[in-house]
Every structure is written in structure tokens, then in C-alpha cells.
Design a binder for these strands. Structure first.
Lengths: 215, 215
DNA sequence: CGCAGGATATCCCAAATGGAGTAGAGTGCC
DNA sequence: GGCACTCTACTCCATTTGGGATATCCTGCG
């Protein structure tokens, strides 16, 4: 049978860069660019339609930026591997990208050969990070809690921890409210806050997280 | 300080039986009947309002019956202990009562002294079952899988198990749908079925159940 | 004293969830 | 061939959930 080629989608609002990248990728037989998009909206739609194996996503775009595009893709259920490509190495962007489900973060000033190699590693399911980036990440993770990093139980207030425990017992907001004798609107506020602090997106994730963190 | 008396609410559409029960309970200083209701609707409203420690609920009532009343109370977040009281020992009722969150199931033909003792045990947080009932329950649990009993992973179809695993990873129906390449409507159907089979009431409970059952 | 953080509560709104029913296609069994 | 089961998909509908904003009350800190 013919060798299956990994499908790749490029997203960048700079046509020239797309061209160069496509050229680079075409040099590798195992890879194939099946689509190019110049905006986040377009990218989300096509990603859902084509379900490529890898999406290379520019961080700095007009309209909705790369991070926002990444978020929405994951929200919509895109399961493709997604690698961010950018000139920037701003700390927040790296952290935001990774915590929002990016599988890699590469800089545009890499050597073409290295870049191609990293793209192949990404297709193989590996997390790819430019060397300059790994340091940034490590530093970001080392500082106590700027904002995003994983999120520890201790960063939650007592009330939030209490409510998280009840969520992990499968209780709805209404039941929790009666249990604690407060309004369910208030419970919702606490849930919202605890989800944000832990970097989770639903009470289900919170429940699983809790079960795994109480050992 | 004065001895705290355990608050009890009686629910039975037979006034005479309420009177007798109240009389019986009044013989014990540690107990206090704070409300009497003659219908399920009334009982739910007052339970939410008064939050008694124990609710003694008649199974056979006109209008919404005891099981339905029990269900709705738990849905509404009533956390009181609830003991079913009935003349019936029909298997289904016992199983339905227990699986819907009842903390006990007593028969009306018990000796008054025994009944009072059981009520006190219920207040103390113990599960109380008439002797005749424990047998029924044991039998019900022994037959393979009539319907309600706990629910094992093996009773689920492959697809349902697969989807349960994804739920336990915190995925939404939409994401699961994309992952499995089926419509999210179909995912909802599978979720509905697996919840029913496992006797759970939400995907959060399902996620927690799964995490605890995969060891 | 002023200010920050925590807990409470409310409003609005979009999306997700769960329950009920119907229905077609495929598979395996007696 | 008929029957049961599974998987798929849809409709309709009520409730729940999560996000944003705003506001009050209280407590602890400098």
C-alpha cells in the first residue's frame, strides 16, 4: 500500500510565510499540506471539516489571535495536534498556549532543517518546544503561582475547596447550595472561580482532578 | 446547655397513623416532631424549608407516591435522612427506595418499641431496615441484574464503556463526538443509557464512578 | 482610616446537559 | 425468517452550567 502522508494545515495571515513553510514541508515525503488558512475563523471551520493530523498555528494574527483560535478549536472539539509558531517568546504566550492545549511552541527564527524535524516530531505525537522556550516554561513553572500554571489546591479559598469536594461527590450546584445553606447563585460564583484558578473548563474536569489529587 | 432534640418530619396521608407515630416519638425525649405533611408536594416544600434531621415518609400515598416524593426531594437537594415507612414489602419498592437515596425502609407492622428504636438509629446516621426487608434486599442484589442494583462496568456495551472513559477524562459530548467521529446527539443517547444502567444522575457522578472503578 | 480579599447575592445570556420519544441500518441467534 | 440488541440520528423540552458584570457585608492588614 502507498505510504500514508500526514495531513497538515497551515494557519498564518502572512501569505509569504505560508508559502515558505509549505515549501519546506514539501521536502519531506511523509508530510502533506492539505490546507492553508489566513484567519482564525477560517482555520476553526476548516479544522473541524478536514480534521488534519497537525495544525501549525501562527500566534500573531489580525482578528482573533492564535491563542484565542487555539482555545476555540479545543472548545469545538478539534483533536488535531496543534503547534504554535511565532516570533514572540513572551512568557505569557507560551504558558497560555500550553495550558490551552497546544502540543508545541516553535519560534520562526529556527533553522529550517530544525523546524522541519520538529514538525515531524510533532506529527509523531511528541511535544515540541524551541530550546529558548523550554527555559521560559521552566521558569514560569518555578515561580509560585503567577496565574495559569497547573493550579494547586492550596490556591483555593476554604469555601472553594469545600465546594470542590462536593463537586467531586457528584453534587449539582443546587444540592451543594442546600448542603452549605447558601444560594445556588453563590455556589455558581465559587465554582466559576475555582475552575479559573485550577485552569479547568468544567465541573467534570474539576471532579476528576479532585479525585486524582486527594489520594 | 439544653439537650438538642432531633427534628423529625412525618409524611403520611393517613392522619391517624401520623397521630400514633407522633405519640410514639414523643415518648423519647431526644426526638421532636417538627412537622407533619399529608402529601408529597407539601412534604417536599416543607423539607426544603425546615431541613429536618429525619423524614419519615409513607410509601403509599395518593398523588405522587413515596418513591416519587423521595426522588424529587433528593433532586431538590434535601439532605435530611429519609426513612420509608410502609405496609408493603414489594421487592421493587425496597430496591427503588434504597437506590433513590432512602436511608431506611421500615414496615408499619413492627412492634412500636422496635420502631422507635429504629427511628433513633436512623437519626444516628445508621441505615435501618426491617428484618423482613434485609432478606428481600439480599435476594434482589443476588439476582444477576434485574435493573437497578449498583451497576457494573460489564453491563455497558462497548460503545458505552468507551464513552464513559472519555467522560472520565473530562470531555464534553461535543468533543467526544469528534473523537469518535459520530454526532453529538448520538453521544447524548449513549450517555443517557449508561447513566441509567449505572444508576447515576449526571456525567459528573459517572466520571467519579469511573475513576474509582478503574483502579 | 483605607484597601484587599473573601463570601454572599443578583442579573443576563449562551451553551451544555439529561430525559422522552421515534426510527433506520447492521449483526447475531434460534 | 423473525427477534433482540447495538449503534446511529433526529426532535422537543426543561434544567444546569459557565461566563461576565455588579454590589454589599465583613475581616484583616498596614
Amino acid at each position: 500500500m502507498t505510504q500514508e502522508r500526514a495531513s497538515i494545515m497551515l494557519v498564518d495571515d502572512h501569505p509569504l510565510l505560508r508559502k515558505g513553510l509549505k515549501q519546506l514541508i514539501s521536502m519531506e515525503d511523509s508530510l502533506e499540506v492539505i490546507a492553508e488558512c489566513s484567519s482564525g475563523e477560517e482555520a476553526i471551520a476548516r479544522a473541524l471539516d478536514l480534521d488534519p493530523e497537525l495544525i501549525i498555528l501562527d500566534l500573531n494574527m489580525q482578528g482573533i489571535d492564535g491563542i484565542e483560535t487555539l482555545k476555540r478549536m479545543r472548545d469545538e472539539g478539534v483533536t488535531s495536534r496543534i503547534v504554535m509558531l511565532t516570533v514572540s517568546d513572551a512568557d505569557d504566550d507560551v504558558v497560555a498556549a500550553i495550558t490551552n492545549g497546544a502540543d508545541g511552541y516553535l519560534l520562526k527564527d529556527m533553522e529550517p532543517e530544525q523546524l522541519l524535524e520538529q514538525i515531524m516530531r510533532a506529527v509523531d505525537g511528541k511535544m515540541v518546544l524551541s530550546e529558548a522556550i523550554t527555559e521560559v516554561l521552566a521558569t514560569a513553572l518555578r515561580r509560585p503561582s503567577v496565574k495559569q500554571p497547573p493550579g494547586k489546591l492550596e490556591t483555593l479559598t476554604n469555601r472553594e475547596q469545600e465546594i470542590l469536594s462536593l463537586i467531586a461527590k457528584g453534587m449539582s450546584n443546587k444540592v451543594i447550595a442546600r448542603q452549605l445553606d447558601i444560594s445556588d447563585g453563590t455556589v455558581k460564583v465559587h465554582v466559576k472561580h475555582l475552575l479559573k484558578k485550577l485552569g479547568l473548563r468544567s465541573r467534570v474536569e474539576a471532579a476528576v482532578w479532585m479525585v486524582h489529587h486527594e489520594s
